[in-house]
Amino acid sequence: MTVAVSRRFAGAATALAALLAITSPAQAHLIGTRLGDFYSGALHPTTDINDVVLWLALGALAGSLGAQRGRWLVILFPLGLAIGFFLTATFGLSIGGNATDAALIGTLGLLLAAGLRLPAPLLGLAGLSLAVMRGMANASGLEAVTNVPLFAAGLVCAGYATITLVMALVIAFRRAEVGRATAWRGIALRALGGWIAAIGLMMIGFTLAGPGSA
């Protein structure tokens, strides 16, 4: 290394060190742009593990049934979230609770584990009902200062993106083994259903009869 290069390196390193030393936590204050509540709505489902499990389970179930049967959920799921959100934000309606969530987790898990070929209308109805309930649950924690349309838009977009991506991933996962002798991917999906069903079963016990029922 020549003296010139080494000096350049030292200069760059010192400048980098100075820059890094003055950094502070990033705080994305998007309130001024009114996008803050949009992101709050989009991220709100991640704050409740019931949402995470139920959305993933529904996406996995719909994907396991194939694109033809599951494609209506791409529209119905976000629509259901919007309807549920609107009903609670406007009229204060609320359906479901921890026991219902646990029962839904268990049912979706059992359906996935059993590999039942649900007809498309039934899957759509189940997805819509679930979305309405989760929309209500997500609207229940609204504060007075929240911009409701932005929050709802964020929630609906998150629902659309999640259900579509999970379904697409599962369909692509299954499609890779079409025509092959070993069908381990289908078994893996059904095993995932077994895990989800187990979680739902335990939570039913916990919420109905365990200490969680108090």
Partner: peptide, 9 residues
């Protein structure tokens, strides 16, 4: 792997 978790639950 499909049924064990359910029975365990």
């Amino acid at each position: 792997p499909i049924t064990f978790p359910i029975v365990m639950a």
